[in-house]
Every structure is written in structure tokens, then in C-alpha cells.
Amino acid sequence: MSCTIRAALPSDEATWRQLWRGYCDFYGTQLPEEVTNRTWKRILDPDSQVMCVVAEVDGQVYGFAHCVVHENTWETQAVCYLEDLYVTPAARGHGVGTALLEWLRNAMRAEGWARLYWMTKADNAEARRLYDRFTQADDFVRYVVRLK
């Protein structure tokens, strides 16, 4: 598949919502509609740190990457956190995920981000096969404290 990677557009909303549901289903989570609505608004807001790029093949969107570019205390440049990456099951193994990660790696170089980083579940073997082609997992363990 020859992918075009581009910023999400307002006209992508219905497709994005369908992909977003697939992503949430994969992780076994149900988010309140207000969270999904707020996420979409932030994606379209040029002043938001949340960005979304989509992978398009022949006019059809098959995947997305949500990222947050932010300052940090370990480098002088900003870093990019790849928060979510999703490709429709039918398009997996055809280079869509690779194209999204390559685009982000190129954006890292062009924008001068110190690093691009992400995480996935330890048992997500399909994603880890893709990610291992870009870099090896480090030895950090994630802790989460929730407000509720």
C-alpha cells in the first residue's frame, strides 16, 4: 500500500470516530462521549498540543497516530509522545503503521524534537513486531495514579 500521511481534517471526523472506537475496543475500554468529543476538538485546534495524522490510501483513511509534543526536563528540545497508533485490522501488515512511524521519525528530525517515544501493552505482539523494527523497548516500568 502506498500511503499518504497528513494532518486530520474536519472532514475526517466520521472515519476517525470509527477508527477511534476500534482502538478503544482493542484496549477493552469505553470512554465517555465527552472525552471523544474533546479529543476530536483538540485534534483540530491549532493551539492544542494534541495532534493527529492519518494514513490515507486511495482516498480512504486506514489509520491514525495521536501525538503530544511537549517540553521536558532531560533535553533542551521538545519531545514527541506517540499516545495512540491504530491501523484497521484489514490494513495491518501492508505498511500503514510503518508509514505513520516513518512520518513521525521524519517530523522529529525536521522539527528538532529530541526524541519520539511511546508504549504499548507487553502482550501486544503484533504492534511490538512493528515497533521493534524502529527501536527496542527500554526497561522503564509505568505507574499510573488516577484522580478517580
Rank of each mutant, 00 (worst) to 15 (best):
M1S: 04
M1F: 07
S2N: 09
T4V: 06
I5H: 01
I5S: 01
R6I: 09
R6C: 11
A7K: 04
A7P: 02
A8D: 09
S11G: 14
S11N: 07
E13C: 15
A14H: 13
T15H: 02
W16D: 07
W16R: 12
R17E: 08
L19F: 07
L19V: 07
R21P: 09
R21Q: 15
G22N: 12
G22Y: 14
C24Q: 08
F26V: 04
T29H: 11
Q30I: 00
L31P: 02
E34M: 09
T39G: 03
T39C: 11
W40G: 14
W40V: 15
I43K: 06
L44T: 13
D45W: 04
P46I: 04
P46K: 12
P46V: 08
D47Q: 06
D47V: 07
D47E: 10
S48P: 09
S48I: 15
V50A: 04
V50N: 01
C52A: 12
C52N: 01
C52T: 07
V54D: 11
A55C: 05
E56V: 00
E56S: 00
V57N: 14
D58M: 01
D58Y: 00
D58K: 00
G59Y: 05
Q60I: 13
V61T: 15
Y62A: 07
Y62H: 12
G63D: 13
H66P: 08
H66N: 10
V68L: 12
V68C: 10
H70E: 04
H70M: 12
H70D: 04
E71V: 08
N72S: 03
W74D: 05
W74Y: 06
T76G: 06
A78K: 14
V79D: 14
V79E: 15
C80I: 05
C80L: 05
Y81R: 13
E83P: 04
D84R: 06
D84G: 12
L85R: 12
Y86V: 13
V87A: 06
V87F: 07
T88H: 06
P89M: 08
P89W: 07
R92L: 01
G93F: 02
H94C: 14
H94F: 13
G95N: 09
T98A: 03
T98C: 03
A99V: 13
A99G: 06
L100N: 00
L100F: 01
L100A: 00
L101Q: 04
W103E: 08
R105Q: 15
R105K: 15
R105H: 12
N106M: 08
N106G: 11
A107W: 13
M108G: 04
R109S: 08
R109G: 03
R109T: 14
A110D: 11
E111P: 03
W113H: 05
R115M: 05
L116D: 12
L116T: 15
Y117I: 03
W118A: 15
W118H: 11
M119L: 13
M119Y: 11
A122Y: 06
D123M: 06
D123R: 11
R128I: 02
R129W: 00
Y131A: 15
Y131P: 09
D132S: 10
D132Y: 02
D132M: 01
R133K: 11
F134G: 02
T135D: 08
T135I: 03
Q136N: 04
A137H: 01
A137S: 01
D138P: 06
F140M: 03
F140V: 02
R142M: 14
R142H: 08
Y143L: 10
V144W: 10
V144K: 12
V145S: 04
R146Y: 06
K148V: 09
